[in-house]
Design a protein around this nucleic acid. Sequence first.
DNA 1: TCTGGGGTCCTAGGACCC
DNA 2: TCTGGGGTCCTAGGACCC
Length: 477
Amino acid sequence: MRARPVILHLDLDAFFTAVEQLHKPSLRGKPVVVGGVRGRGVVSTASYEARVFGIRSAMPTAEARRRCPNAAFLSPRFEAYRDASHAVMDLVRELTPLVEQVSIDEAYLDLTPQHPQADVGLVGELVGGLRARIQARTGLTASVGAGTSKLVAKIHSDLAKPDGQIVVPPGEEAERLAPMAVRAIPGVGPATAARLTAHGIATVGRLAALDLDEVVALLGKAHGTQLHAFARGEDDREVVTERAAKSVSAESTFETDVTDRVRLAEHVRRLTDRVGERLRADGLSGRTVVLKARRHDFSTLTRSTTLDQPTDADAVVLRQALRLLDGLDVADGLRLLGVGVSGLSLYTQPDLLDGLLDDRPGPVRTGTVEDDDEFVRPDAGGGALPVEEPAGPGDEAPAADQPAPRSPWRPGQDVEHVEHGRGWVQGSGVGRVTVRFEGPNTEVGRIRTFAEDDPDLTPADPPVWQPEDAADEAAGS
DNA sequence: TCTGGGGTCCTAGGACCC
DNA sequence: TCTGGGGTCCTAGGACCC
């Protein structure tokens, strides 16, 4: 806990619907619901006008329609929301560089660098100025809580909604929290609240009065310890500006439950494509492939398998995901399928290059080699090495007991034909080899082909690869 | 027309190693 | 030669958040 109320939590009010009302004036002042508009959709955001009818986030859209048939029901337009979010976060970063964006419409700020001595009055002025600028420049309203910790800031941005702000004076944390319902603490959901209530603990004050041992016995070590501290207003968490992704996944719910394995397999392939595209666009590869299934009764299963080497190749992920699907009983029907990859690593891990760098170290480049590229493996005497074809959509799924074919490439191998730098095989998968580059005139990006005569690789005309190119390419353009 | 889609973190048991 | 104990990895499930 800090001595001064320098931690802020900013939350945009009814963000998705606010953007829609901004773009379409006829929606202003009317009930608007953004979410899944089809059969099994749920509400993402309800405008304040729609909340009057009892419509809430996560409510089935069908229920929302019953409550307010005349509301506008819109599918989300994430690109518009991302643009608006960027505009807001740019303004936020003018106040402090210590910004932790936790979702598209929420961020924590730490004012310490600019205003280490800020008091309640100054913080109130700064927050008021920020909110006014956000409204003037984007048309959106934001609510802000401020205090000595993330916990206090977060709880009070909620209380300030809509279009308000609360700065909690240092020292008042515990007494303000005490009368609140336990559900007000972030991390206390329906299950934890029910468990606490069953033991007669309804308020934060009651929770704070318990011994640590009692809370841990009730809620487990990690959760119990944290909630015990939170209930007392104690929270030392830092504002973290960068956070590495831990997993990438895609999932979707069927209109009606599906039992047909052919349809399920086809769906797994589409999900795998989406995951693979995003892995490659972000320069990531992962070792663990996860298949998620939700059954007709809403129970959820996960099956996972871990590879020897990280991969970002669709064919590798697909083979594993189909194997996992084979092991599932689908006779009663599935309502959802998901594919994920975790155990992620960045292709560009500087420590792997230690001792291998050129005399003139340049920026690092990460690339992917397609199966039609010719490679010369140094220990193979200069012969071209075949790379196995990736499985096509029409290929049969391999038998469950058949081990995945291994790529002939091994991490650490040198790639000789790169003329203006050096390359090493870093990640390897069947049909796709990831190569790491170090040399002048390179930038982080994606490399499509690596034929020796590739004009992009001639020293006379050094390539300039932009991350945007990589994203476009991964998107299939 | 009950219950989306993208994540994070934790727990617990078994395997395996020393 | 009736049985230890710690550490790590893997897998499955669940709570929670926006």
